[in-house]
Design a binder for these strands. Sequence first.
DNA 1: GTCAAGAGTTTGTCCTGACAATCAGACTTC
DNA 2: GAAGTCTGATTGTCAGGACAAACTCTTGAC
Lengths: 245, 245
Amino acid sequence: MPLQLSVDRTSPVPLYFQLSQQLEAAIERGTLTPGSLLGNEIDLAGRLGLSRPTVRQAIQALVDKGLLVRRRGVGTQVVHSQVKRPLELSSLYDDLEAAGQKPATKVLRNTLEPATAEVAAALGVAEGDDVHLVERLRYAHGEPMAQLRNYLPTGLLALDTPQLEATGLYRLMRGAGITLHSARQSVGARAATAAEAELLAEAVGAPLLTMQRTTFDDTGRAVEFGTHVYRAARYAFEFQLLVRP
Amino acid sequence: MPLQLSVDRTSPVPLYFQLSQQLEAAIERGTLTPGSLLGNEIDLAGRLGLSRPTVRQAIQALVDKGLLVRRRGVGTQVVHSQVKRPLELSSLYDDLEAAGQKPATKVLRNTLEPATAEVAAALGVAEGDDVHLVERLRYAHGEPMAQLRNYLPTGLLALDTPQLEATGLYRLMRGAGITLHSARQSVGARAATAAEAELLAEAVGAPLLTMQRTTFDDTGRAVEFGTHVYRAARYAFEFQLLVRP
DNA sequence: GTCAAGAGTTTGTCCTGACAATCAGACTTC
DNA sequence: GAAGTCTGATTGTCAGGACAAACTCTTGAC
């Protein structure tokens, strides 16, 4: 009921964003319980000394995140469900780390190779052009988990093997000033080949989860193409998704 | 360059939505080419006889969809990449239909069953309570493609077998006035059991793609829990996802 | 020629105000 | 008692204006 909200007008952080974060924190903390009404926008604006559009912008951000639901004539309610996060472009590294499993990485290859037709098409370069190839084996709890093979255009990023073993590829890219925008993914399954079985300590023919992903930055340039193979017995993709209204 | 834009003020469709749809259509059609500037918001508003907030709302909708990128001091650009759609909560039926493969469905079971512990937990009902069980086999091009098993709480929807064979489950739910809000999914892989192999015309031990999904409506109520099995040789999940800034 | 400063452009944020559409509940009427 | 009807509450849409922040390009200085 108390629900302390306040904004700092001297801060460079936008007002709507401050409000949005405070509301999200209150939901996370349980101060705003699922199903509870938020109180109407006009009052809220008045109490905070903000205008209604600003308050609406803050609320809209949380509606887009799936945390709130608005109903005309009724009000804005906290959605009561196990919303975690609406599927981000996360790396396996981050996923594992978030799950509390300290991931380890072994770089198997880090070279320049001429692009095959498939890679060239995905990255938008000419066939035969040199591209970076990074092949890694990722472990969790000391067990091999996945074989990750990534292709990157040249001249985008310095790929340092020690760094690749210490963190994830996406972090390196973000750190290099590349703003990831979207990705096209394909998730399937197939039986393990002899080489894969050897590498992942599985039997030949064991089911593997496969993922192909092309990632684009905000200029539409393909910045990465990866074909990955996961041990199905050890890993599954978990995600939350929102229906866009 | 011409780019015919106009809004109909007598229409009940919101102005920002009319504009947003026209812009999206122009991008789809190729009239607005990737990388091209959209022209500044003030002018655009003036030319259309709209206010700037309305134009901004229209543009924002497309930015959220990943079709446009805004840059302060530069302008709004059409993102040039193969954006299709940012992963909707789509049913297999819709997916197949969109791919031009006429899907067929055979209902194997449509009964009431007591909920197991797993189903009860997913749907938020008591263990042993009756729930609907719908088991279907889905075909594409006359070939079996997937086994779909769905559990639904009672009293939500009339599950008519002929209707289930004619369309997808999600369409039925939407038609019954249920507004889908979010879903929690898990995608994995495993080897086919003897029963699954028989049903899907695969060999025992063949890799299968598995998906579990719990769907929630906008009140946070679980409205469906499904465990599905796809022939990995015939199907893969394809989707596009956006990085939320 | 190179680098820095400044001007102009464009989006980002925020305000005030107004009316419309929709929903829930109380009220009226039959 | 049941059905329709009205009323109040709340979000949805739209206008117009103002200033701030970030980017690009030109201009100027060295």
